[in-house]
Design a protein around this nucleic acid. Structure first.
Length: 789
RNA sequence: GCCGGAGUGGUGGAAUGGCAGACGCAGCGGACUUAAAAUCCGCGGCCUGGUAAUCAGGCGUACGGGUUCGAGUCCCGUCUCCGGCACCA
């Protein structure tokens, strides 16, 4: 019988590969090295979904191809197994996260093996294994010793529902990325990593990487470099010159002559000082505003975007260093404490935000930049422009006739820096915006009231979590106020067993309950101390796992330097674009630190990166009562799969649909049959419409699944899942298999008895198949094309 | 608003500047079958004319221009969609 018994074929070979370690990588083997990395999965309780095998299949095909071409291929797999879901599950069910994690890992391993990938299973890593996180802790100690890890009392994103703080990157529109819970700002004691110290290199080194332009651009935006100037403004309190000055950061120092007021962030240190020493006459009003701003979540702050709010500081006045103008000072939450100096000069004529604020508070708006060609005609005094020069500017008081305060009458701020020409700005008049900036900076530096300054949006990385299921910090706080690291030889510092790992709700980590573990006594001096009870975030383990694959069993160091030299950098890294700024930026940061310390031979970890897209799916399971989100999906053009609903918008599961003349018919529960409307749906757990690879493998085999995944379209694109498409591929494999089996006859090779010339239709199929093997598989081919020199 | 990517049949998608629509799905016609399923063969951008079928002509890669012997592909402009960022001074 020539039936395509995929199950027997696949099981046979998978067992063979496993038993013979067919895909074991020998680092000393001949051949040019090729390190091909998949983003390792978080082993969730839901098991693998059809999105996982997509990237894995693409890399797997490439790896097999490379092996056949004689490359020595490193192709490993592992588990990113610390993290919130296992712990949430533990809290809900009382099952220890270690047990849940082991169960999930076992299931994931089994599922991935059933797909027949050519991983070297001897290199499997697990971030929750003490033998692994020993080195995560060790790397943290190197960061600490290099001065890149510190504790700070900082306003953090506190999520009451999760009972932990989150990194800025994990908060989206004021809600937690995981679970979509509200997040508020609250000052807390936290571990921070000085990623800002690497901002410039993280930015610059992007240029040489072979990554999708979009990802690189996202990282550039996240790092957010800007060049501008710090400018010192004088301060008058009660009409007298005060000791203080206000330093502002601006990228538009060319518009300094147009400043009409100043704004401090509500958290600015000077505001607190003035409140304390009684300088402010409207202290109650100011305090009330500070309180309001502090209690606002980020979401509320952004929602209030449209309407600017603020309070004038009564009793203090700023002094513009270029023209001596006295400027009112406000506090407003549109100025962020955490960026620049937390203070700005406001030039409402040439900045949209300042313009909006000035309109609300009825402040003057003066023009200092005009569209090209209009610079002369719009001068209010009609006098010709004197030739501007720095010398003239140096005597600002002498050329005051060139500094006129001309009200700006436009309906919105004029911000065109490409064509703008300076007006009403003394020594800058007639210059382009571009030319005015260095001129102004030079003037500021000569006067000692300012200097050029580069700023980054990137903040230090908030590295601690108030949770149980993560790497403990190898740090002890002693009773005398000192702090020390756990000796490297005593690592790993293992997680204590805990009966109760619920969040405390107060922000104190669950580890504080493990009193035996927390309290330590120095055996030499008898000094008492307590262990750090925060744990590391999930990103820690994934920051360096690609290094451990290279030498996974080493217990002397995280990986042998010689082997690192042989295998780094990763030649191809495939994974979801959702990690564009989180994992990929953090991993690059750690890698650069290790590079600086001489532990890794390359400044960048991942030379080539390909992002797989998302897989959309037919809505074919479950019942969701609200159709609105789906309708929006339609409007957004994500029409790639079909789901079915009645006229009232009630969804009808696929198995309840009757097909009448090619049209879908169904009924609401207890309702009448009617023709249904089809519309698309995105695959998600909450919709209960996730396609399970196990089912696909059971019905069609791993080869069908893999071939279909490659056949759906470009790896990078968002694609629809279609079970019909799998069937098409399955038939194709059946035909191919039957051809090889001699179409219902026993396999028979050329020259053997019984051989006959294949009929034309058989040849056609065979050619078709070979053509398919060579030509198709969009993602692989793209990866491969990118790979051919 | 800013940045990045993409628009090709009913549908998922192919095409170093050189026959647009490979291959799959859905569809239609046929073979096999008592029948159905499965399987196999064939057809298939749109319009017009003709037709059992073959065929002939025209229009076609979001829209408007351009470069070229030749454009889905390159250039300029417009629109739409997707993704990311967004009070960052």
């Amino acid at each position: 019988m020539s039936e395509y018994n995929f199950s027997a074929i696949e099981k046979k070979w998978q067992r063979h590969w496993l038993e013979n370690k067919t895909f074991k990588t020998d680092s000393s083997a001949e051949g040019e090295k090729f390190y091909c990395l998949d983003m390792f999965p978080y082993p969730s309780g839901a098991g693998l979904h059809v999105g996982h095998p997509e990237g894995y299949t693409a890399t797997d095909i490439l790896c097999r191809y490379k092996r056949m071409k004689g490359f020595n291929v490193l192709h490993p797999m592992g588990w990113d197994a610390f993290g919130l879901p296992a712990e949430q599950y533990a809290v809900e069910t009382g099952t220890h996260p270690a047990i849940t994690t082991k169960k999930n890992v076992d299931r994931f391993r089994e599922q991935i093996r059933a797909l027949g990938f050519s991983y070297d299973w001897d290199r499997e890593v697990n971030t929750t294994d003490p033998k692994y996180y020993r080195w995560t802790q060790w790397i943290f100690e190197q960061l600490y010793k290099k001065g890149l890890a510190y504790v700070a009392e900082v306003p953090v994103n506190w999520c009451p529902a999760l009972g932990t703080v989150l990194a800025n990157e994990e908060v989206i529109d004021g809600r937690s990325e995981r679970g979509n819970h509200p997040v508020i700002r609250r000052p807390m004691r936290q571990w921070m990593l000085k990623i800002t110290e690497y901002a410039e290199r993280l930015l610059k080194d992007l240029d040489a990487l072979d990554w999708p332009e979009g990802i690189k651009e996202m990282q550039r935006n996240w790092i957010g470099k800007s060049t501008g100037a710090l400018v010192d403004f004088g301060v008058l309190t009660g009409g007298a010159c005060a000791d203080e000055k206000i330093t502002v950061y601006t990228t538009r120092c060319d518009t300094l002559f147009g400043a009409t007021y100043m704004v401090l962030s509500p958290e600015h240190a000077l505001v607190a000082k003035w409140l304390e020493d009684g300088t402010l006459k409207n202290a109650d009003e100011v305090k009330a505003y500070q309180k309001k701003a502090a209690s606002k979540s980020d979401l509320e702050r952004t929602e209030l975007n449209k309407e600017k709010t603020g309070v004038r500081l009564d009793g203090v006045v700023g002094v513009n260093p270029v023209n001596g103008d006295k400027l009112p000072i406000f506090i407003s939450d549109y100025v962020l404490a955490s960026y620049g100096t937390g203070a700005i000069m406001a030039v409402p004529a040439h900045d949209e935000r300042d313009f909006d604020f000035a309109k609300v508070f009825n402040l003057p708006i003066y023009q200092v930049v005009a569209p090209a060609g209009k610079a002369n005609s719009e001068k209010s005094d009609g006098s010709a422009n004197a030739a501007p020069s720095v010398d003239a500017g140096a005597k600002a008081s002498d050329n005051s006739e060139l500094i006129s305060r001309v009200p700006y009458t436009g309906s919105e701020a004029f911000t065109d820096i490409a064509t703008g020409v300076m007006v009403n700005s003394g020594f800058l008049n007639g210059l382009s915006v571009e030319a005015a900036r260095p001129t102004m900076i030079k003037w500021l530096e000569e006067k000692g009231v300012g200097k050029a300054k580069t700023q980054y949006k990137l903040r230090d990385w908030l590295f601690s979590r108030q949770r149980y299921w993560g790497e403990p910090f190898p740090v002890i706080h002693w009773e005398d106020g000192t702090q020390s690291l756990v000796d490297e030889n005593d690592l790993p510092l293992t997680l204590p067993e805990l009966a109760d790992y619920k969040p405390t709700g107060t922000g104190e980590p669950p580890l504080a309950k493990a009193t035996d573990w927390v309290n330590v006594v120095d055996p030499k001096t008898g000094k008492k101390g307590v262990r750090e009870t925060n744990t590391m975030p999930q990103w820690a383990g994934s920051c360096w796992y690609y290094l451990r694959y290279i030498d996974p069993a080493n217990d002397k160091c995280f990986a042998d330097p010689g082997l690192l030299k042989k295998w780094l950098p990763v030649d191809l890294y495939v994974g979801g674009a959702e990690h564009a700024v989180l994992h990929l930026l953090y991993a690059r940061f750690w890698h650069k630190v290790l590079f600086d310390l001489g532990y890794v031979p390359t400044p960048e970890p991942f030379q080539r990166l390909v992002n797989q897209g998302m897989i959309l799916v037919l809505f074919d399971l479950g019942y969701v009562p609200t159709p609105e989100p789906f309708q929006r999906l339609v409007n957004q053009g994500m029409i790639l799969g079909m789901a079915y609903k009645t006229k009232r918008g009630v969804l009808v599961p696929m198995d309840k649909i009757e097909w009448r003349e090619g049209k879908p018919w169904g009924a609401e529960e207890g309702g009448e049959m009617e023709e249904l409307t089809e519309f698309p749906a995105k695959m998600s757990k909450s919709l209960k419409n996730v396609v399970n690879p196990d089912d696909v493998i059971r019905d069609y085999g791993a080869d069908s699944l893999r071939l279909y995944e490659m056949f759906m379209g470009p790896l990078q694109a968002v694609k629809p899942w279609s079970t019909k498409g799998v069937e098409g591929v399955f038939r194709f494999l059946k035909r191919a298999n039957r051809d090889d089996q001699g179409r219902g006859e026993e396999p028979c090779r050329y020259g053997q008895e019984g051989w006959r010339r294949p009929r034309d239709d058989e040849l056609q199929h065979r050619h078709l198949r070979d053509d398919g093997v060579c030509e198709r598989g969009g993602g692989v081919r793209e990866a491969e094309l990118a790979n051919q020199d």
